[in-house]
Design a protein around this nucleic acid. Structure first.
Length: 260
DNA sequence: ATGACATATGAGATATGA
């Protein structure tokens, strides 16, 4: 079972690109972030034509997450528990049938948090604490679980071409990285690092500006975190970086795991 | 360097991103 995560930076601006990539990669599950539209406006029909069911948690203009799956989900949760006053659409979770049972998949759009000296950074850290609390609850079920998405976290220096340039950034500050480590230390595996512990140059994002793609000035901020039961089934990880070179690309590329 | 790019909104300029 092939599971992907992709920050698509507006599903309406990118629907043709998304369809082209899905036809090529043929994933079983696709977690999308930054769809930037309300749930009713999501182009579900276009994906249904390719045989996918769409579960959507959207909002106007900003954020918005979705899960596309070939098999229809058994259940869907919209919104991250822990703060009923949080109106930002950044979390959706679905239980999806697999040949060997079911997999619980979350599509996560973790707050950016810049600039760091503002309430935006406090919101990011609080959101990470809520995610950790929820992950702890989910891990207690001892299921095949994949927490996939745009984490807006550069876990370590090897995950950036120029780590020094990110020193004061919300994506790389010690508080951010400590919370990400805390999440991993619950017992989750960073799938890409589980299969390539020290390899440099594994990036998922290149800024639109200043020729970042041409210079390969990238960072790795899109992650698939696996429960032990999911890690047992991990046979392949992949970053589809060629998609960044397509016409009108998202600034992120798909990251994938295969569970067998 | 608060800029470059890109997107949404809404119809010009601003907010957001990472």
């Amino acid at each position: 079972m092939l599971i992907a995560t992709w920050n698509i930076n507006s599903v309406k601006a990118r629907v043709e690109t998304a369809l082209a990539w899905i036809k090529e990669a043929k994933p079983d599950v696709v977690c999308l972030q930054e769809i930037k539209c309300e749930s009713e406006a999501f182009p579900s029909a276009a994906f249904e034509e390719l045989g996918y069911s769409a579960s959507v948690h959207g909002q106007k203009t900003y954020n918005g997450v979705a899960i596309l799956s070939k098999r229809r989900p058994d259940e869907v949760r919209r919104g991250l528990p822990g703060d009923t006053g949080d109106s930002q659409a950044r979390y959706i979770e679905a239980v999806i049938p697999a040949d060997w049972g079911v997999v619980r998949v979350a599509s996560i759009y973790l707050p950016n948090g810049n600039p760091p000296a503002t309430e935006k950074f406090a919101y990011k850290l609080a959101w990470m604490d809520r995610l950790t609390a929820h992950a702890k609850d989910l891990l207690a079920h001892e299921e095949v679980l994949v927490l996939a998405g745009d984490y807006n976290v550069i876990p370590s220096a090897r995950d950036a071409k120029h780590p020094e340039a990110w020193a004061g950034d919300a994506l790389f500050l010690p508080e951010t990285r400590a919370r990400f480590r805390h999440l991993l230390n619950l017992g989750l595996s960073d799938a890409v690092r589980a299969t390539a512990p020290d390899r440099p140059g594994l990036y998922t994002f290149w800024d639109y500006q200043a020729g970042a793609w041409q210079k390969d000035n990238g960072i790795r901020i899109d992650h698939l975190l696996l429960s032990p039961q999911a890690a047992d089934r991990l046979t392949e990880t992949r970053l589809d970086r060629h998609v960044r070179g397509w016409e009108k690309p998202s600034d992120h590329v798909p990251a994938l795991v295969r569970l067998s």
